[in-house]
Design a protein around this nucleic acid. Structure first.
Lengths: 115, 115
DNA sequence: AATATGTATGAACGATTGTTCATATGAAAG
DNA sequence: CTTTCATATGAACAATCGTTCATACATATT
């Protein structure tokens, strides 16, 4: 199902073979967006924009179970969208970098303009 | 399950009630990203970045059935990410606006940097 | 009108996903 | 060590999703 080559230099309209641009990277791109494509995860990320939070605080703010939040945080962490550090018996989570903010902002901008 | 209020002015850390920022808009945001969260749709959009295409051409380029592509195009059109115009018996699809390009570029940038 | 070509769509099916439940792991307090 | 509090995780289940198949609709050609 997957096509072969890919790179990230850009600048290659459609390589003679005809697959399309950056074929393989497109799957990574979809994987990235898929993580932002769930309301629970988006709400978690937005909570973290205000600063680090532990799991139970996020769960409380979102009125969801600790388990549900923890599962989603695991996905976000795997994708390096959030970081975590132990603090006593709590785990403090925070946004991994400004990329996350940028992507959320861009998306929110689009949703709000909504021609 | 859904929380009440929302707006898009930004600038309100967390309204006293305690839901979070822009509660309702966050669902729209997730819905938007969800559309970018599928490799078929992302590949379609990338093909359209090079210019308008009819359904069967997209299907051919992506080596998928016409039906599969048509179904996805319907979703993309509903979300106003693509436009379509009839041209003879073919339907020509194109990106709806530059927002789509921006979001794809932003995402691709992140995937390519990938710290 | 009949045929051919391109597109749209409903139903069905398999696969993926998000939540819950139960339980395990980790860390601090008694 | 035992208990308590916070977090992590595997299994299971319902819901959602993407593709296929069959078929309907639309436009052009003969």
């Amino acid at each position: 199902m997957k096509q072969p080559v890919a790179s990230c230099d850009g600048r290659h309209p459609h390589p003679p073979g005809g697959g399309g641009p950056d074929e393989e990277k497109l799957y990574d791109l979809a994987d990235l967006f898929r993580l932002f494509g769930d309301s629970t995860r988006v709400r978690i990320l937005y909570q973290l924009m205000e600063g680090p939070l532990c799991v139970c605080d996020i769960a409380a703010r979102l009125d969801m179970t600790q388990s549900a939040i923890s599962h989603q945080l695991r996905l976000l962490k795997q994708a390096k969208l959030v970081r975590s550090r132990r603090s006593g018996k709590a785990s403090m989570y925070s946004l991994a970098d400004d990329h996350v903010r940028t992507i959320l902002d861009q998306g929110m901008e689009h949703v709000c303009e909504e021609i």
